[in-house]
């Protein structure tokens, strides 16, 4: 029991220690609005060196540089869009978590919608075709064939029963 408690305390301690390893330096702005924009930009810009980390959560040197540059630009009064453009001009579209709509990304943006439209069209066509076939009913020739088929099958179904009845008494 004591060993278990010690283990639990140890594991909790590990949980406390990990986040402190990945500490990111804090940039304090005098203006809270600027601070909010800074935090938002840090979340939406992707670290170019990392595979999937925002510059706000990465400890890599380039992410640190990008944070510092973002802070400087904000203090110089540049707009969010201006800062985004400046980052894309240097590091490419990769740094935007939300890719922009342009000649290379239109397929990415439009494909889901296009697939939904194609799917709905196919379903609509299939349903319509089924309904049409249902409404038309059977031709005289088909009705005749159906009757013959039903007759023979009914006879076949009755036969074994009749045989049993005759033998059982």
């Amino acid at each position: 029991m004591a060993a278990l408690i010690r283990l639990i305390i140890f594991m909790l301690g590990m949980g406390l220690a990990l986040p402190s390893l990945a500490a990111i330096e804090v940039h304090d702005f005098d203006d809270p609005a600027l601070q909010a924009r800074y935090n938002a930009l840090l979340d939406e810009l992707r670290c170019p060196k990392c595979q999937n980390e925002s510059i706000g959560s990465s400890n890599s040197p380039i992410a640190r540089d990008m944070r510092a540059r973002t802070a400087t630009w904000l203090e110089q009064g540049r707009s969010d869009e201006d800062i985004r453009n400046a980052m894309v001009a240097r590091f490419g579209d990769y740094v935007l978590y939300d890719p922009r709509l342009d000649s290379r990304t239109w397929l990415l943006w439009s494909l889901p919608g296009a697939l939904v439209i194609v799917g709905v069209t196919i379903i609509a066509l299939v349903v319509r075709q089924r309904r049409k076939r249902h409404a038309e009913g059977l031709s005289a020739l088909e009705r005749q064939r159906l009757a013959t088929l039903l007759d023979t099958h009914q006879e076949a179904a009755r036969m074994p029963q009749d045989e049993r009845r005759e033998k059982s008494p």
């Binding site: 060196k49 380039i62 540089d65 990008m66 540059r69 240097r90």
Partner: peptide
Amino acid sequence: EGSLGFDLGVYG
């Protein structure tokens, strides 16, 4: 300071 590197989009 890596300022030219930054403007060149160098990340390594």
